Simulated assay, not measured.
Amino acid sequence: MRTVPNDFAVHSMHCYFVLAGDSELPILYHVERVRDGRSFITRTVQARQRGRPIFTTTISFSRANSGGKKKLEHASPMPNVPLVDDAPGSRFSQAAGGGPFESRKAGIGNRHSLNPTDKRLRRFFRARGHISDAGGHQAHLSALAYITDSYLIGSVSRVHDIPRFTSRAELEKALNALKNPSDLDDEDISRALKELKEGEAEDLRRRLEGALSKADSGKIDPEQKQVGMMVSLDHSIYFHNPWNFRADEWILTEIESPWAGEGRGLAIQKIWSQDGTLIATCTQEGVVRLKQDEAPRSKI
């Protein structure tokens, strides 16, 4: 974004995750100025570690108000979901924890449908703290891009209601975590538990105890599906209103999965600002492989 004029904003970003990155090593970003036009500007970026590309993206920018006075306009409406309440003691009151952003569950549309493609997973996000005006709209776009990669590919297994815990050891660990939250040492479980209020935690505790009872009695289905591998392959973001939102205010996301097969899955995400403006649409495909009785024949 620093290589384009301020009256241009990103409208699409297409990413490929090539190799796993190493958080202990610096990343070198190589930016290529592909084209500078009157209405559109194109850049490619390659992120490298140890001299090898780990990530590539092509980004297109459009000039503000370049579409003319007459234009076609339509947008998907925001679902009727109550906004987050930050009041102390509320269902959505802020939880402790690190990371650059925070999130709150906002329910599942068509939760009880037998068709996975009908379900809509909803969640509120925002950047922690206050993004200063010095960063301009570019800072909010960067934060939004970061946020879009959270929970997206995981929705492919969630719409199939594949349980998080499928073995006795996993069930015992989760149940002990609920009883002794100070003993948590797993980051994912810790983050999930911090989002639960007392009533939700009690409900989860009862379900885990029931599942543990089934494990003791041998009633757990040996054919129960279990996720063996899940990792992003590619990620695309379409920014619709790059100047009309703040990433440090609550935004609503809704995720659906129209397809899964051949060891992969696709997720689509819509994002709205508080005033109901559709600010972005994302797609992500990833490897979603179930645990097999025999080793898979292919490798990425």
Rank of each mutant, 00 (worst) to 15 (best):
N244T: 00
L141A: 04
S273F: 01
S232V: 03
K71C: 02
G21A: 09
E254L: 00
H112I: 00
E223A: 14
P181Y: 12
R164L: 11
W243D: 05
D161K: 10
S39M: 01
A192I: 07
S217K: 15
S182K: 15
I279E: 06
T277D: 00
A9Q: 11
N65G: 10
R104Y: 02
R206S: 05
K71Q: 08
S273P: 00
G97P: 01
D183Y: 07
G210E: 10
H30V: 13
L178A: 08
T117R: 15
D293R: 15
R52S: 12
Q94S: 12
I220E: 14
G99P: 01
E187S: 13
V159E: 06
M1P: 09
R207M: 07
D293G: 15
I300Y: 10
Q94E: 15
A177F: 05
W250K: 07
V159P: 02
K70W: 03
D203I: 10
I131S: 05
R122C: 08
T117H: 10
E198K: 11
G154Y: 04
K194P: 00
D7A: 07
P181W: 03
P116R: 08
Y146E: 05
T57Q: 12
I131K: 09
V18M: 15
A95M: 11
P88K: 07
R207N: 09
H14A: 07
G107A: 03
L290I: 02
R206G: 01
S23I: 13
H140Q: 06
G129L: 06
R2Q: 11
N6D: 15
P82D: 09
L233G: 06
G97M: 12
S232T: 12
P222I: 08
G98V: 04
K71L: 08
V287G: 02
P116E: 12
F239R: 08
W243C: 02
S298V: 14
S60Q: 09
P79I: 00
E202C: 02
K270N: 15
I54M: 09
T42R: 03
F61K: 02
E249P: 02
C15Y: 04
D203T: 13
Q138M: 05
A143G: 01
I255E: 02
C15W: 10
S150V: 03
Q138C: 05
L171T: 06
N115L: 09
M230D: 03
I147F: 03
M230A: 11
S150I: 06
T253A: 06
A20V: 12
L266F: 06
T58W: 05
P77R: 03
A139M: 11
P5L: 04
S150H: 12
P53V: 15
E209K: 12
R164C: 06
S213H: 14
M78F: 00
K71H: 13
A215W: 14
S76K: 08
S132M: 09
M13A: 11
S76F: 10
S273L: 01
R38K: 13
H74I: 01
H14I: 12
